[in-house]
Design a protein around this nucleic acid. Sequence first.
DNA 1: TTACGTGCAAAAAATTTGCAGTTTC
DNA 2: GAAACTGCAAATTTTTTGCACGTAA
Lengths: 126, 126
Amino acid sequence: MTHQRRLLIQIIQNADGHVDALALWERARAQDPTLNKVTVYRTLGLLKKHGLVDELDLMHLQGEKHYYEARTIRDHLHLACIKCGRIQEFESSLFEKLKGQIERERRFHIKVVRLEAGGLCDRCQG
Amino acid sequence: MTHQRRLLIQIIQNADGHVDALALWERARAQDPTLNKVTVYRTLGLLKKHGLVDELDLMHLQGEKHYYEARTIRDHLHLACIKCGRIQEFESSLFEKLKGQIERERRFHIKVVRLEAGGLCDRCQG
DNA sequence: TTACGTGCAAAAAATTTGCAGTTTC
DNA sequence: GAAACTGCAAATTTTTTGCACGTAA
């Protein structure tokens, strides 16, 4: 556990929204200007592998980058408005049931699940 | 509607699995060697925008590329085995219910949904 | 014919790799 | 002290852009 990792993890945990790799790098550099971009990618890879962060596309509303968030206890899904760009999160017991159904009917052991929807949010309709 | 587009659309429609942009290009070039990679990307962008194809990550099991599939009448979700790489598809009325719940409770008008899970398939457990 | 699509070349964006040196435990 | 981690530079992979020419309707 190096101080670089500690810093990156702390930033992801405390981030309110979703950060992409370069945004994470920017924020980390504010506190440790020597921290390298490569370290960001390597750390993200590690955290992903250990299930501590989840990776999202958020419908690629701006470019092909990925977004990251600290994993929460309960899975949630993401709604990306293609008009205003707002990202909403949504928790649902139906989602939990659906996961259960997959595990049972396919005998598939889920490690990561990612549900993203793109469309128009309530503010952007009509 | 150019013959390049017609060809690309036909390949995606008839593809059994999921193709990435370069695989699509390879297959297209077999029939039209002058067809350019850029045209593939541009056509995919168009088809995506019009909701004719869906874009997937499939857990980025091999690299950061995207995979594409022709949109079907009923949405389905994707299960990617992180051990053997097998991709399974799964349809569920719970999935449909969940989408309904999102549209109702958030007044979110869904245009695209993408549900991907990573984990261990039945063959790869134990 | 005219707006739209394509190819080509080049660039941009996102991510990975090799290696030598430096930390962590 | 050994194993693991980092920075640096350079490479790879994936996708986008500018522009002149060509083609479908």
